[in-house]
Write a protein that binds this DNA or RNA. Structure first.
Lengths: 213, 213
DNA sequence: GCCAAGTCTGAAACTTGTTCTAGATTAGCG
DNA sequence: CGCTAATCTAGAACAAGTTTCAGACTTGGC
């Protein structure tokens, strides 16, 4: 699905089609809100992010919070965008060093996974919001998905992936999200997530460019 | 506290420690509740399943509903167990006919997918509940997972899967759940889900028993 | 049949996400 | 500066999930 064509070169993921050019104070408010959200999420996960508390911690009125983020899910998905942006930047500085594409992707995802393990509550809030989001949050979720895709393609070292390869990437993303869910809900161990990631990354080998052998 | 009702004919994951043997009237109440839940879900999806309405439609008091199912998520996950049971039974009667394991698994999942397409709202309620469930619902979610695994292994025609094959099955399940989510939230088409299922099923080929070639 | 323990009902109360309103503040502009 | 539209604030109000409780009803044991 190639619905978006907004400028993607800078990694700013400027998700709004017509971002109404916030004033400085508004930009600051937005940052304070996202910061408060991440802070509360880090403490107690999804349920600890309570809109009244976010508003208070960010120093804005409840109505204002809802003007910036029309629901708790929107807020948490935006928080995830924010975090992914950081990760992407970090990864670009120190790219994975594996032999083949599958290894590099697995390494990249395991790095992301370790980052999440350091803030499991935050991970809980973000991932639960992401998978619980309904249609009204689709544009934002899609942005997260595109970011994730970009990270994986970076790891694969591909500029112009084939449709087959894009399918493999989508399946990897599916596995990534769902494996995180099972880990967060205590139904799978860290080791198991690792295995699942490595398993799904073998799909990449199946779609290696034929002209490379 | 109750849930032991589904002694399936088959190897139903009968993991409950002590199902307190419901009386007939209790069993009937439980059925009415699950029926009301599925009914409301079929109409309007996750949000249409409102606990007060379920209670009224089932003819029980709100407190009773909560005694049977300690949360809306528990209720919907139990609803999914119920539906999966049906599916499993149906599939056993008419097993998939593909050439190799990968084809049979893909066919099975596509059959399930078509069933869900007939009740997209119900699918929405069940799948969203399943992925949103937190630790307190782990046992029930695990039961759903085991049922799904059983269905996939049936399609593969395996009695004693290797650890590698189990990994592949887990990844298939991940993809299945996550692809459903993207479809339900309108971010992927039916065709795309099909492709993702077929893509991930190719993993099975990688784990074919070595002594078979 | 009768009692104790457990269960069910009806209704109110509580929690947290979301919406609404009236008035204060701010931003942009002539 | 003074005006107007947009934004922000405080707080009430509303919606739906969840909890609680007093009293009525069932159940199982005697």
């Amino acid at each position: 699905m190639d619905r978006g064509s907004w400028n993607g070169d800078s990694m700013t993921a400027d998700a709004r089609p017509a971002a109404p050019a916030l004033t400085e104070r508004q930009e600051a408010r937005r940052r304070r809100i996202l910061h408060a959200s991440a802070q509360l999420a880090s403490r107690g996960g999804f349920e600890a992010v309570q809109m009244r508390e976010v508003a208070e911690a960010a120093g804005v009125a409840l109505g204002t919070l809802y003007r910036y983020f029309p629901s708790k899910i929107h807020l948490l998905v935006a928080t995830m965008q924010d975090q992914l942006q950081h990760l992407h930047t970090t990864l670009r500085k120190r790219p994975p060093a594996g032999e083949d594409a599958a290894q590099r992707v697995a390494e990249t995802l395991m790095r992301a996974f370790r980052a999440l393990q350091r803030e499991p509550h935050l991970a809980d809030a973000m991932v639960r919001a992401l998978t619980f989001a309904d249609r009204s949050v689709s544009p934002e979720v899609d942005t997260v998905s595109r970011l994730t895709t970009a990270i994986i393609l970076d790891a694969m070292g591909l500029e112009h992936p084939t449709p087959e390869q894009l399918s493999a990437v989508r399946v990897i993303e599916h596995t990534w999200h769902s494996a995180l869910i099972t880990w967060l809900s205590g139904r799978a161990s860290i080791a198991q997530v690792k295995i699942d990631i490595e398993t799904v990354c073998r799909l990449i080998d199946l779609t290696a460019e034929p002209d490379r052998g």
